[in-house]
């Protein structure tokens, strides 16, 4: 393909990314480094701050007067357990919302909606967790992660301290993200990488692989060119980005295992129907 066409594709995917995803990497990094004019995020680092911040989880705008609320008293252990479950449910509803954002992004990839509808479902089902992990990375640093559109920062130690298996879900994602963030991709690079992941022709059960591979090949060319122009000093960046796809598959396998464990041990837990569809029979 002509270089000009590949640049148009990169621009188109970047625009779609900006349109569909509410928190960009640029904004997340500004919040994490304190270089934003907005208020600093509310920090959740223990059960008390979780109880205080709980009602604002998944709010796009944190009410100003509520940010400095204090003294909720000690949380009893049974209440703690409920609090963990409620927090997990709100994570699920944000994840379901993110699934719909990713679906809209996928539909904007040129040629995607012309694929067999069953194959569109398969690509999204198998690519979704990988895409969500990549999208989570810019929100993370070694100490924690932004949630609720960047309104809240939750510490890694606190997440780790949640009762099993809740405490185990995020740790491998933190390990991956810290390494992935070292590649220093920006939002325009991320848009291309997400499209490459979605257009994986080796997902189980695909009916018509060839047109998917053709689409992916085109996005790969576009990403290779874009990375060279956007990061002229970063050697082998294209290859390094592609290598991350292997790590992603392992992360998904771990995620599925933990979710399975939850299903068995947490009788009170009810998985969001959209997430159930994605998780069911996944590997």
């Amino acid at each position: 393909p002509e270089a000009a066409d590949l640049r148009v594709l990169a621009k188109h995917l970047y625009e779609s990314y900006l349109k569909n995803f509410p928190l960009t990497k640029a904004k997340a990094r500004a919040i994490l480094s304190g270089k934003t004019s907005d208020n600093a995020p509310f920090v959740i680092h223990d059960m008390k701050s979780l109880a205080e911040g709980e009602q604002f989880i998944n709010c796009r705008q944190l009410p100003r007067q509520e940010q400095r609320r204090t003294s909720m008293g000690l949380i009893q252990s049974e209440l703690q357990s409920e609090l963990e479950l409620r927090f997990f449910r709100s994570c699920q509803s944000r994840s379901a919302e993110a699934v719909s954002e990713v679906t809209e992004f996928a539909k904007s990839i040129p040629g995607f909606v012309n694929l067999d509808l069953n194959d569109q479902v398969t690509l999204l089902k198998y690519g979704m967790i990988e895409v969500l992990i990549i999208m989570m990375s810019p929100l993370m640093n070694k100490d924690g992660t932004l949630i609720s559109y960047g309104q809240i920062f939750m510490t890694r130690e606190f997440i780790k301290s949640l009762r099993k298996p809740f405490g185990e879900i995020m740790e491998p994602k933190f390990e991956f993200s810290v390494k992935f963030n070292m590649l220093e991709l920006d939002d325009s690079d991320m848009a291309l990488f997400l499209a490459v992941i979605i257009l994986s022709g080796d997902r189980p059960g695909l009916l018509n692989v060839k047109p998917i591979e053709v689409l992916q090949e085109n996005v790969l060319h576009s990403m290779e060119l874009h990375l060279k122009m956007n990061h002229p000093d970063s050697l082998q960046l294209f290859a390094k980005v592609l290598q991350k796809m292997t790590d992603l598959r392992q992360l998904v396998a771990h995620h599925v295992q933990v979710m399975q464990l939850m299903k068995e041990t947490e009788i009170d837990m009810c998985l969001h129907p959209l997430l159930q569809e994605i998780m069911k029979d996944l590997y």
Partner: peptide, 21 residues
């Protein structure tokens, strides 16, 4: 496959519906 993934299918066919979320 479409039958087992009704919400995903619906999201693919229509624009985002808050009802599903």
């Amino acid at each position: 496959l479409k039958e087992k993934h009704k919400i995903l299918h619906r999201l693919l066919q229509n624009s985002t519906s808050p009802v599903d979320l």
